[in-house]
């Protein structure tokens, strides 16, 4: 369980949207073998009677009131855009499901 194949790593890279070189995939496959063995130690004590902590603070119900506050100007919003057109972010063609 604590080992990954090169294809597994390639699939993770695909999920994470990183175009990795063959060399990188090789290296990571090796490294993951070591790292996963080390981190798998958590399973030694993570028994079913232990509750999970997803957050260090036990806060609940933190809300804001439904009030409009000023937005950025479109110039500010688009200030970091690699490309823009007609006050919109210009991005390469989207392959995928029609939304």
């Amino acid at each position: 369980m604590s080992s990954l194949s090169r294809d597994d790593v390639a699939n993770l890279a695909r999920l994470a949207r990183i175009e990795m070189t063959d060399q990188e995939l090789e290296n990571l496959t090796t490294e993951f073998g070591v790292i996963l063995n080390a981190v798998a130690r958590v399973q030694e004590v993570a028994t079913t009677d232990v509750a999970a902590t997803s957050h260090p603070l036990a806060l609940t119900n933190i809300f804001r009131t439904d009030v409009v506050i000023p937005s950025l100007t479109p110039e500010e919003a688009l200030s970091g855009a690699p490309a823009s057109e007609d006050q919109r972010f210009r991005v390469p063609q989207i392959l995928g499901e029609e939304a």
Binding site: V67, S71, Q87, R88
Partner: peptide
């Protein structure tokens, strides 16, 4: 806190 009004100019309701 951005407004939700429908039909505003593009990217005027962003933060």
């Amino acid at each position: 806190g951005c407004s939700t009004i429908f039909g505003a100019e593009p990217n005027t309701q962003t933060c």
